[in-house]
Computed example of a mutant assay.
Amino acid sequence: MSDERLILSSATPGEHRIDDIAVVNVDGAPLVVCTGFPTLWSWAPMQDEWQERPLAYAFAEDPLAAEYPDAENGIDSVAVAVSDGRVVVAAGGDEQGAAIWDLNSGELLRGTTYDEPYVSSIATVAGEGPPLFVASSGVHWDGARVRGLSREESPVELDAGSIWGLATVSIDGRALIVGGGEEGVEVWDATNGEQVASFHVDEETAYAVALSQLDGRPVVVAGTASGKVYVFDLTGDDADEPIREPSTGHEGCVNALDVAVVGDRPVAVTGGEDGTVRIWDLASGRQIGPPLTGHNWSVEAVVVTTMHDRAVAVTAGRDGVVRVWDLTL
């Protein structure tokens, strides 16, 4: 067991499963936003306080909405950002397109329509300026779309196959998006949708992805359906090959991952179908310590953030529990 790393643990009200989480810093403290409920909920870990977050119906602006007066949101993917002092949340699901709300008031800022692509993954685009979000649709639609708060601006289309996992990073002022799917891993420029790179993962589906840096160069990290963790050099000449053999340890799919630099060591944190959370040294590919085994069902979400100036991993999944792990031990 590795519970010495466990800082906090809190079950959702009603013990609902959690399909996704996003973390945003509000007044110097992390706020965790959770999906998997009939409505959205947030958890303030510093106070261990849960709050229900009702949201206006995402299809309210579609004329067809009048035909479904009792319909409710069905969201299981979420991203958050801070804009002009307020927290905005973008979310969707496997039967609902991406929409954007004010988290505190529940006001719909940018709705969706019944013919919009459904959502398998959504992420906040890294960078300065007004918030942007990127959403993909898995098997429902190919590619991904970048959109902001303004209804007047058309989405930026990212040309790709089925994308299941998304992540973003800003490198030298350039916002990059990485997507993992059935055809491997692809990287785009968020501004114009131009493809920057693509990688194969031995004909596996990549369900979880992230962007990090290793020895001063950008790298792409991908977790696959068979439990492998790949690392690719984004600027290398032999870009289609991983920098080493993939790391193994999970039994079953890697559902989620995030990256961090702990001290001066780049690491990846993965959550798996086997219910474990694992920490990996990106330089060597080796697992750091034993697996973190607090969850008793599949881990669906992993987000790295800071608490009390310490790097922590926030994890959640089908057991309906959010756990916070110390990454500095």
Rank of each mutant, 00 (worst) to 15 (best):
G227Y: 00
D264L: 09
G320H: 06
A222E: 10
A283W: 00
T328N: 12
T39R: 13
F199T: 09
A313I: 02
E128R: 12
R244F: 06
S77R: 11
S170W: 08
S137E: 02
E241Q: 11
G74Y: 14
D281Q: 02
L158R: 07
S154C: 08
R17G: 14
D215I: 04
S298N: 07
I243E: 10
H200C: 08
D19W: 14
L282C: 01
R5H: 12
A90W: 01
Y68E: 11
S136L: 01
V139A: 12
G106M: 06
A311D: 13
L234R: 14
P242S: 05
C34Y: 02
V312L: 05
E183W: 08
D258L: 06
E204H: 12
G138E: 06
D319N: 10
G92M: 06
A123P: 08
E107G: 07
P130H: 07
E116D: 11
G180S: 08
G165V: 06
T224C: 10
D237R: 15
W164N: 08
T168L: 05
R53N: 13
G143M: 03
S83L: 10
D84T: 10
A208C: 09
S154T: 13
V134W: 08
E245D: 11
T306Q: 15
A225Q: 10
G74V: 15
V221E: 05
P131I: 05
N104H: 13
S9E: 11
T315V: 00
S42C: 14
A260R: 05
V219W: 03
D240S: 14
P13R: 07
A126L: 06
P266V: 03
G289N: 02
P291M: 07
P130Q: 14
T305K: 05
P246N: 02
Q213I: 07
G148T: 02
A60Y: 01
R5M: 10
V277T: 09
V299Y: 07
V134C: 09
Y57S: 08
E204C: 13
N104V: 15
T112P: 04
A79P: 03
A197D: 06
L132N: 07
V229S: 03
P30R: 04
L292W: 14
L8F: 14
A81H: 04
R110C: 04
P131G: 06
V267E: 03
V88L: 07
T124F: 02
L109S: 07
E128L: 12
A135I: 03
V322Q: 03
R17W: 14
S77H: 12
Q195S: 12
G252L: 01
V262A: 01
E300C: 09
L211K: 02
V220C: 11
G148C: 04
V23N: 00
V269W: 05
V178R: 10
G127A: 08
R318D: 11
L55E: 01
P69A: 08
